[in-house]
Design a protein around this nucleic acid. Structure first.
Length: 279
DNA sequence: CCTATAGCCTGACGGC
DNA sequence: TGCCGTCAGGCTATAG
């Protein structure tokens, strides 16, 4: 679930449920989720504080606590949030529970425990220490920044889009959707794309991510002509009805339309004939 | 330097 | 039904 659009929805959710309420308790039932500090060191600074603001960078949700303290949440493959009233049944797979003075809880849930939570004092320092590239939807990520980020990479376009140090926020599902909307095969080498198709990928990236956020990152609400709702075994291309193809590309399952996203032709070019590197 | 692979963790699913 | 392998939308450490 949690790629950029999903995390943005989680951010909005936390923002609309949990701000400005004093935290009276923090219960961690899965200590491995807390990064770089003990459970006590994580809990203690949060108690009696209030969440006052939120931000997001790529797949990271940042929560400001009154002063200079920030809590970072990462959701791994299976994380989520659930705000619920005390006494109501606890959401399944609740790993961390924030209790507010108003009698409500915010649960950080995770099936596979692949996420992380931690405390930091500077989002800026955190982002640079983690070597995260600009957020895919940020103003700063304009075409020239995108082209530069992609130009520095070698290999195929799909893993490049998913490289958080190049562009932050795109995962397996949305990389497939972006490439489908671009008509570009996921295994296409970046340096054979050329300017116009790279521009197309960039435009699709912005469009797909914005559209996904507008539709609450819910595949079933996505517009027709989107891959996400039919991205299953035996699914058919929403555009040409071809049977979708699945293949492992650099370790991840890629799904694409063999007709709308034609396989790049492998040519054995001499170095001099290769397209000039994008810079 | 780069890219590709294995591993982390838990659960769901399909085949035998 | 039960067991096993495979796979799953994350990242990281290590090997090549």
């Amino acid at each position: 679930m949690p790629e950029l659009p999903d995390v943005e929805i989680l951010r909005q959710y936390l923002e609309s449920t949990s701000l400005h309420k004093t935290i009276v308790d923090v219960d961690v039932s899965e200590p491995a989720l807390v990064e770089g500090m003990s459970v006590q060191e994580f809990r203690q600074p949060l108690i009696h504080e209030r969440m006052t603001d939120t931000a997001r960078h790529g797949k990271y949700l940042l929560v400001n606590l009154d002063g200079r303290l920030w809590m970072v949440m990462h959701f791994g493959m299976t994380g989520g949030l659930c705000y619920y009233r005390r006494g109501d049944p606890e959401p399944s797979r609740t790993r961390i529970r924030f209790s507010f003075e108003n009698g409500y809880h915010l649960a950080y849930t995770s099936l596979r425990n692949l996420g992380k939570v931690l405390l930091i004092t500077s989002p800026k320092d955190f982002i640079s220490a983690r070597q995260l590239g600009p957020d895919a939807l940020s103003q700063h990520m304009d075409y020239s920044v995108f082209r530069q980020a992609m130009g520095r990479k070698k290999g195929m376009i799909k893993p490049a889009l998913m490289d958080q140090s190049a562009v932050s926020g795109i995962g397996n599902l949305y990389s497939d959707e972006i490439l489908f909307q671009s008509g570009v095969h996921p295994a296409e080498p970046i340096h054979s794309l050329g300017e116009d198709r790279l521009r197309k990928v960039y435009a699709s990236m912005k469009k797909v991510l914005r559209t996904a956020v507008q539709h609450r990152a819910d595949p079933s609400l996505m517009p027709a002509q989107y891959l996400l709702p039919v991205r299953t075994q035996g699914g058919r291309c929403p555009r040409c009805r071809s049977v979708l193809q699945a293949r492992k590309i650099s370790g991840r399952s890629a799904v694409f339309c063999p007709r709308c996203q034609p396989e790049p032709v492998k040519t054995s070019m001499t170095p001099e004939r290769q397209p000039r590197r994008l810079t």
